[in-house]
Design a protein around this nucleic acid. Structure first.
Lengths: 281, 281
DNA sequence: CCGTTCCCACCTAGGTGTAAATGT
DNA sequence: ACATTTACACCTAGGTGGGAACGG
């Protein structure tokens, strides 16, 4: 699998992770390696080294009725560590995500980095309270297409072939590594995560192409594997279809803007009515 | 030493430490025990279970000319772990602390908890980069006296016997435990630490008596001791005499108020002149 | 023309001392 | 009297979308 190896070999970890946890790189180096193999090892590889979810039947996205996510690991050839078998994840604020998703979620990307809204938050169950886990997120292009917003029809249309991707980055939750009991105590919020369109970003933010569609993913990594255990698959990936979005430098769909203003406390200054708890966040 | 044992026995750890790190209690239980013995084992014990620094020659405070602190461990009977021998601490913003100290530093205590200013910040050297350490602070009453401010003479005078102390608390730095390399990377700031006069405080803040004098202390704890090593003294305490202060509910010395306003960025609104970088913080 | 960048008014969240009110 | 509490104006620090300016 030469492409995969080449991809991993050129995948310099240092600038890929967010700054808050850079001093813990040793913990994550091997996990990064595993994720590379896992993400791209059995998928169609494009010139830019990236994967298309849609072109890979293993990853084909399907609508889920509940808060449940797609668990990617079921197709793994290696056995999954027992510490991860019972792990379940649930998306917080699912109703709000659904509302955005029905309109076509847009996320602002800026040179300096912009937080995503709604914030990515998950609740975990089934971790070993005393074992150590690392939590991380990454963002997979949904396709290799560039989009534009057709104002006359109020819809997104394909505008051509996708632009080349910067080397993909991962965001490691700042509490990592922590015990299972810590992660299960309350919802885990990725509110430090920022999105940027600056291909040369030096702040460890997630680099995305504007006008491209992305699927966020959550990874739970078992951090205490030793001996024979370390040969098992020591992570589990959760994909919530309703968190898909298109990266933009300015909002295109006015209804998205209005929903952001209505639901994001920091945008309260732009609300028309005084009912500021339309969404209780 | 019945008082010491009684003191430690009634010293329920749970509510003593700040909330941010409460889930890491297991790490600190033994250290707390050691600190109790160490702090109070060879000192005069008062009815309230507290120690007078002044009445104990081993702890007698003396002025230091440089940034150096008093290292308490030299009087220990047990051997100190090698991982701590070369550890040195240096007080950040020493000039500002000196300026406050010459006037007689006052720190506001409130029911809800108030940050100290200047912020307690130290720089560490000599840690093993790969070993894990815990950093904590506590506050020792300088004497068992109550003070009042004599406005006519602009000085603090003894107003009687000290009030009973609440069970002493420790503040564990939120990054604990972390590797030596982490702690030495930059100055360690205890900016999450808050002081309160609420004897029933439930937020893990440091409980102090208003109008009483306190000496802050820094403790570096070696967290990786196993086997024979664990019988050694696995912590080192640093005391910076210039950080001594009197707890107050309202500032008494007007010159302290003015110095706070001049040097604390959050008090900029009370400055007379527009030169807001009189102190570059 | 369309997408991006930049500055800005307006928020959230929380750290200041003040001065009046409230104990004790 | 003196100490403490409370509400508050005024900051820091940083997250919003708007709209003008910029650029291919």
């Amino acid at each position: 699998m030469p492409m995969t190896e080449k991809y991993c070999a050129t995948n310099n970890l240092e600038p890929l992770v967010n700054q808050q946890v850079s001093h813990r790189l040793a913990y994550f180096a091997e996990m990064q390696q595993q994720l590379c193999v896992r993400n791209y090892g059995s998928s169609n590889i494009y010139d830019n080294g990236f994967t298309s979810l849609h072109s890979n039947s293993q990853h084909e996205l399907r609508t889920e009725s509940s808060h449940k996510s797609i668990e990617d690991n079921v197709t793994e050839s290696r056995s999954v560590n027992q510490k991860l078998w019972p792990v379940k994840a649930c998306l917080e604020m699912k109703c709000l995500w659904d509302e955005f998703n029905e309109l076509g979620t847009e996320m602002i990307v800026t040179k300096a980095g912009r937080r995503a809204f709604p914030t990515f938050q998950i609740k975990l169950w089934g971790l070993d309270p005393d074992a150590h886990y690392i939590l991380m997120m990454d963002f997979v292009p949904v396709d290799e297409k560039r989009y534009r917003y057709a104002f006359h029809s109020s819809s997104w249309v394909v505008a051509g072939k996708g632009d080349p991707c910067a080397p993909p980055r991962i965001h490691i939750h700042q509490d990592s590594p922590e015990k299972g009991s810590h992660w299960m105590k309350q919802a885990i919020s990725f509110d430090k995560l920022k999105l940027t369109n600056n291909q040369l970003d030096n702040n460890g933010h997630i680099i995305l192409n504007s006008m491209h569609r992305y699927q966020p993913r959550f990874h739970v990594i078992y951090d205490s594997a030793t001996g024979e255990e370390s040969k098992l698959v020591n992570f589990k990936t959760f994909t919530f279809i309703e968190t898909q979005f298109i990266a933009v430098t300015a909002y295109q769909n006015h209804r998205i803007t209005q929903l952001k203003i209505a639901s994001n406390p920091f945008a309260k200054g732009f609300r028309d009515c005084d009912i500021d708890d339309w969404y209780v966040l």
